[in-house]
Amino acid sequence: MHKITRTDAASSVVGLSDVHKSFGALKVLNGVSFEVNRGEVLVLIGRSGSGKSTALRCIDRFETIDSGEIVVCGHRVSDPKLDLRALRQDVGIVFQSYNLFPHLTIEENITLAPCSVKGISKAQAKEQARRVLAQVGLEDKLHQYPEQLSGGQQQRAAIARSLAMQPKVMLFDEVTSALDPELTGEVLKVIEALAADGMTMVMVTHEMGFAKGIANRVVFMHHGKVHETGPAAILTSPATPELAQFVGAGL
């Protein structure tokens, strides 16, 4: 599942160095650096407006950066001549609002990109759809439309859709923020299983308990900077007062 295609720095999947980004006069990222190695789970936390979602979106070039460098699976994301579609074949992204295509069945949602982008056969794609849906526990929803599913099921289907492209790294942008606690649980379980399988992941989340359990590394963002970073343990014994206040308020 995890083929290593590069020999140099083979373990670094995502690397940001000194990334700056402004929206007009508002400085959102102010020199952000972090690295994610293969098989690692990096959790981005911070207040609303701290820049964590923007940092995540920059990885998949949904935002362009002003300066600094981002390298993802060997792609220089900051390069204007970047092959965007090649980058996005290596990176899977799951959004807060699921964003399944409402006019397609779950199966069609999942097979669309593998068939049109990778050019695999319909039969192969359907076989794969069954497999990824089983992975997220939705094998019986193949022929339903998104609107017939609960929010948690839609989010799991969105994860399955991403998985079908066999990405090398998965990005999760507050994927449980629109869900109630029970539905959140079923989505988090799927993500945990992925982590256990060795998937490299970067996620923005407000679920501190979950972050503690899954993170290999936590990055706490504050005013567009990496304010504190370290293993999951920093969530229980923070070094800076800002993180202490944040986790205190978050629990």
Binding site: R88, F95, F101, A113, S116, S162
Partner: peptide
């Protein structure tokens, strides 16, 4: 977000248009 989801799946501009947005 529908456009973004289609982009995130590496669909080309014409694929996004024909298969996701137009319908």
């Amino acid at each position: 977000p529908q456009w973004e989801a289609a982009e995130g799946l590496a669909l080309s501009r014409s694929q996004r248009m024909m298969k996701v947005i137009l319908p």
